[in-house]
């Protein structure tokens, strides 16, 4: 039931995604849409990892970075075709996620949060220091656009479709996953691991699989980011950026497939809005003030919409539908 309606919503979003660039031809706006797509992709894994399995990870930006640099190095330094680079990215991200998860996922406590912070710092330092391979703090220039055979995804519109196509496919896969017995098993991790084990669920392996999945999505997101911009630098993959992705899923709604998408849209709108609005109110406002206002908005969301926007919107829709149903029933009663 829920799966069906989710697939329906996905269909509607797919249509919107296809139409949008035909209507909006402004390149600045298109860039924003591409940005929302990347953020959604990178946050999607977190929705399952945090919202369903109850595991907190600060490594999404690091995995994005690993993906971006892997794609860059493989295409530019090794001259492999981008499609092969993308596949390699997925493999490398999953190996990295496996190694990070291995020592800590056996435990229920939040060791994962700690180790992912450490891992992110390490990745960040390596990106800066291994300048022979990564180009150091100055960044890596000249990543070719993505291509499949002779078809090259050049320009904003092609990249827009590439990223959003990947987002839609990923959401489709997640909807299926969550509606299966594995999806139910995932939800047990959050409330009772011992009961889950008693029901025959290998909790360690399951957490590992989700963590790897989240890492691979972020890695692919990073690779697509590199292909699209052709230039990458370590700062984009700083551990602080991971907090943005956590914010996205918390604002959008932890326990909804749509959380990442809604969160990415809202956080983008807030961020862009503040960049334009704040200087109008306080002319000599610096970047710090922007961060403060941004943080304040997040606190407000958490205070008043703790479930996040996704589930809250879904609930109000449901209530409305129930109300119309019950009022219909009433009229039926009266006519009888």
């Amino acid at each position: 039931m829920k799966t069906k309606s989710n697939i329906k919503v996905l269909g509607i979003i797919a249509v919107l995604v296809v139409i949008l660039p035909l209507v909006v031809q402004n390149s600045y706006l298109l860039q924003i849409f591409i940005n929302i797509g990347s953020w959604t992709l990178i946050s999607l894994g977190l929705t399952i990892l945090l919202g369903y399995a109850g595991q907190i990870s600060f490594a999404q930006a690091a995995f994005m970075g690993i993906g971006a640099y892997t794609a860059a190095i493989i295409t530019v330094t090794l001259h492999w075709p981008p499609l092969l680079a993308l596949i390699t990215t997925a493999v490398i991200s999953s190996i990295m996620a496996f190694l990070v998860g291995l020592p800590v996922l056996r435990f229920k406590e939040h060791y994962l949060a700690l180790i992912t912070i450490g891992f992110s710092v390490m990745v960040f330092v390596l990106m800066n220091q291994l300048s022979d391979i990564t180009g150091g703090p100055g960044g890596f220039i000249g990543v070719p656009p993505f291509s499949i055979g002779s078809f090259v995804f050049k320009g904003d519109i092609a990249n827009y479709y590439l990223i959003w196509g990947t987002v839609l496919i990923s959401i489709f896969l997640i909807i299926n996953l969550l509606s299966s017995r594995i999806g139910r098993a995932l939800e047990t991790l959050r409330s009772s691991e011992i009961a889950a084990k008693s029901m025959g669920i290998n909790t360690f392996l399951l957490k590992m699989k989700v963590f790897i999945f989240a890492g691979v999505l972020a890695g692919i997101g990073g690779a697509l980011y590199a292909f699209q911009l052709s230039f990458i630098a370590p700062n984009t993959f700083n551990v602080l950026e991971s907090i943005t992705y956590l914010t996205i899923v918390v604002v959008g709604g932890l326990r909804s497939v749509w959380g990442a998408l809604i969160g990415a849209i809202v956080v983008t709108v807030i961020e862009k809005g503040l960049t334009h609005l704040l200087p109008l109110i306080i002319p000599d406002a610096g970047g710090e003030l922007e961060s403060i206002a941004y943080g304040l908005l997040l606190v407000l969301v958490l205070l008043f919409i703790p479930d996040g926007l996704g589930p809250t919107i879904a609930k109000s829709f449901k209530n409305k539908r129930n109300m119309t149903k019950s009022s219909k029933l009433k009229t039926l009663d009266q006519s009888n």
């Binding site: 896969l173 997640i174 299926n176 996953l177 299966s180 017995r181 594995i182 999806g183 139910r184 098993a185 939800e187 047990t188 959050r190 409330s191 009772s192 011992i194 009961a195 889950a196 029901m199 025959g200 669920i201 399951l206 699989k209 999945f213 326990r255």
Partner: peptide, 29 residues
Amino acid sequence: ELFEGLTTLENIMVGGYIHGKCGFVESMF
């Protein structure tokens, strides 16, 4: 130790986990 966020039916269905065969990747498709 019931599972939060799941209905009675779903909680009981989790008990049938070992009778299922679909794995992580297969479930996605």
